[in-house]
Design a protein around this nucleic acid. Structure first.
Lengths: 170, 170
DNA sequence: CTTGGAATGTCAACAAGGCTGACTTAAACT
DNA sequence: AGTTTAAGTCAGCCTTGTTGACATTCCAAG
């Protein structure tokens, strides 16, 4: 299926970055980097009764205040039962507020409370700090490349979601 | 703590890639890309009684045949109870072989069987195919940047582990 | 106005895959 | 001989995902 060899090709284009060894290094880099990526928030959350799922919910509610449950479901890619369990605890603990929709009263619009914003800041400050250091150490060209490859790795569905979020940003 | 603004600075260096908005996009790109990254193997594994944990074990046993349990534990960053549950099923199902060490008989050296290699290929072919497409679409410079940022995101411990693996490769 | 379907929520049961703690066995080191 | 190390095992717990069934509310089309 693959001879693992790719040196130079048509037009003198260098495709050495497509050898199996290079691909494997990319795969392993993804594995280790994702661990680093989640390490800081995980540490903060382990002290509480929360986990990564709570972090994700909080992140995207903060990102798009007033978002509906259904919308959040599509972004997170989990079942409503799974999300509901997380949301229920966050609402009970007073970190998230759920307001009945005005135009469509079936919908619930989600907002962070003051306490919710406080936790969101703690979590994303930690994660941003790591990202900032990595970005600074790597430099602007590397960051551009990083983003290009990550976008190419997404499914088309997720990529659309990501683009929509990106455009809605500040 | 952070005013979220970073335009240009000393030496005319452009630090626009360090704004909070840029960092958030990086964070969200990581989130969505990791889902894409694991999607194909997950699909294959969901038909069997295996999960992502089995995939990881198989990957690294294939990467470093004869590795000890302790070594695998350090790479994966889980408890031995957690890993043992996975290894036991893989050994029972005849995908992994565990050989008593020759110099130190306390150690067990792990190898993939023929069936193990077959599954490993199915899984990594799918993952590599996605990575290859992403790399090809993004181009060599982007790939270099991708790797640079990912390495900068790792904890120093993980980074050492990653480097060791990288150097041991082909 | 009624009925079908959509959005949401809830209950129950289950599985994967993390974790801690306690304990055993065998081998190696001191 | 005694301690440490590598590995394995048992029991129990947690988070977070799943499916399936079902209730409620409400919009919208017939």
């Amino acid at each position: 299926m693959d001879d693992g060899r790719a040196t130079t090709t048509r037009g003198g284009e260098n495709l050495l970055f497509l050898t199996d060894e290079q691909l494997r290094q990319g795969i392993e880099a993804m594995f280790f980097a994702y661990r680093g990526f989640t390490a800081d928030p995980d540490r903060i959350l382990s002290d509480m009764a929360y986990g990564r799922a709570h972090h994700r919910a909080i992140h995207f509610i903060n990102r798009a205040p007033g978002t509906t449950v259904n919308n959040l479901l599509n972004i997170l890619g989990v079942t409503k039962q799974s999300l509901n369990r997380v949301l229920r605890t966050l609402i009970e603990d007073g970190l998230v507020e759920s307001r009945v929709g005005t135009s469509d009263k079936r919908e619930r619009h989600l907002f962070l409370t003051e306490d919710g914003h406080a936790l969101e800041s703690r979590l994303s400050d930690a994660q941003r700090a790591r990202m900032r250091t990595a970005f600074r150490d790597a430099g602007p060209e590397a960051v551009a490349g990083f983003r290009t490859v990550l976008e190419a790795m997404m499914d088309t569905e997720m990529h659309r979601t990501y683009q929509r979020l990106k455009e809605s940003g500040a």
